[in-house]
Design a protein around this nucleic acid. Structure first.
Length: 128
RNA sequence: CCAGACGGUCGGAUGGCUGCCUUUCGCGUUUCGGCGCGGGGGGAGGAAAGUCCGGGCUCCACGGAAACACGGUGCCGGGUAACGCCCGGCGGGGGCAACCCUAGGGAAAGUGCCACAGAAAGCAAACCGCCCGGCUAAGUUCCAGCUUGCUGGAACAAAGACGGGUAAGGGUGAAAGGGUGCGGUAAGAGCGCACCGCGCUGCCGGUAACGGUAGCGGCAUGGUAAACCCCACCGGGAGCAAAACCGAAUAGGGACGGCCGGCCGGCAUUGCCCCAGGAUUUUGUUCUUGGGUGAUGGCUGGCAAGCGUGUUUUCGCGCUGCUGUCCGGGUAGGUUGCACGAGGCGUCCGGUAACGGGCGUCCCAGAUGAAUGGCCAUCUAUCGUUGCCGGUUUCGCCGGCAGCGUGGACAGAACCCGGCUUACAGGCCGUCUGGCACC
RNA sequence: GGGCGAUUAGCUCAGUUUGGCAGAGCACCGUGUUCACAUCGCGGGGGUCACUGGUUCAAGUCCAGUAUCGCCCA
């Protein structure tokens, strides 16, 4: 396995499904998209699933690789402790992630995850 | 020491914490496909890029070969698996030089084009001009006559049209039919001569491209082929998203069964029998056409029934076989292709070189939403700034040392290899050229 | 990864085949018409032909290279 606690999204359809949930949180260095699991894929809830997107507008191949690797390192450090395990995430890299301090990068990810958690808890009582 | 030319090479280093991909060994486990744990090895480039050429490999097409068409290449010789690449040489151009640039076959095989300007743009012609000839002839001079200012004659002659000679000069243009000089001439002209250029022939050197030289010709043959074209040589097409194998779920196709089967009509297919016609045959027979009759969950129309649905009724819409086993195509996905190769390094030999050969040694990335990383510390190249010192053609420039700050250029394999082109902070090494100083 | 195409005025496009003056429509400016505006008439400005070299007397056009944008292939 890639990581015992993080599984990567690989299919184009999975990315589109996360984007269609329309839950987006913007920070200076990254954009977080999230989607809670529904009944259809609730049978195994253990790994957090996350995908990375860095478009061509960010830069050439070297820049894109570096942005994606820094974001992946930050996600592997932060997400097992902070993220809701019953959700899929897509992290979209922005150009400023290249020069951002690493602690700032993890801070941005933490704040985006916290916003998602807060919104989720606010919605739950209505749903139940 | 300064300035420059060419070639080669490197393209951050070390350590710590923590991850990813791959491979191998050991142990454990297994539903025999693998999985887990631990140890070891390996993990981006000179351009991995652009996709501009050449090959390997795969599929498609094709009896062999050639030709046509289309595309490409284009001085000569060599290297190579091959090339439009590389090496050496030649011609032309540039630079004081080292050296650099060069798509560089054919324009007397043919066609096209050469705008504007100019007389004329390709075959020789003639606008202005220059010169000659006779003709007309203002005018000037001289002679003769006499009606003394007129007439006649002669010579010279501005100018004009005409006929001829010429291409030196003018002007236009990117380009005007060899150039310069002397002679020559009515004026001119390769008309003659010398040198240069050009062409032809011979000789010498060279494998050749080509170079040198002698004689002859007296200038004929403008440019454009990255315009069509001619000549010589090369090329079948597509590309690893090629191709091969395994293969879910869902829908649909086919075969064989089981259960159940509302009525009427049309079409189609088909079996058997009957009737009629035709063909064939001696006959039997066989074939065929039409009609009748029966069958077929093959299509279709209507009514009825059932189910679903619009909240319910009326009313409307949609569906009508259900089910089991097997087969084939094939999607998602997976595996192979896929990394031992025109391989790297060292050394010796041949060759001016590109390169070739022998020997030894090494195994050196294989991802697929795509691994080769993230964070930290120290050092270092560079750059900025400050101070000090030294050199010097004072502004200034160069070099060294120290402090502070910044902190690496272009750029990421995607089947592989040989080239080309493009991007690139800077460092190091070697060879050579010019200038200055000293011995 | 591989295979193709495009780039001309502020915008949309001709012109490229066969080299010679860079054009059209809309937009912009001035002016006339109108009490005023629109429409309409007349006149005008605006271009490194994406960029860099080469061939040619001459390049938007021909030939190489570069940049940007777009399309197709499982």
């Amino acid at each position: 396995m890639v990581n015992p606690r993080l599984v990567h999204l690989k299919k184009r359809g999975e990315f589109l499904r996360v984007a269609s949930a329309r839950r987006k949180f913007v920070t200076p260095s990254l954009i977080l998209q999230a989607r809670p699991h529904d009944e259809s894929d609730a049978e195994d809830t253990a790994p957090i699933r996350v995908g990375f997107t860095v478009s061509r507008r960010v830069g050439n191949a070297v820049v894109r690789n570096r942005v994606r690797r820094r974001l992946r390192a930050a996600a592997e450090e932060i997400m097992p402790g902070f993220a809701d395990a019953n959700s899929d995430f897509v992290i979209i890299g922005r150009r400023s992630a290249l020069g951002q301090e690493y602690t700032g990068l993890t801070g941005h990810l933490k704040s985006a995850l916290a916003k998602y958690e807060k919104e989720n808890n606010k919605q739950k009582p209505i749903a139940e």
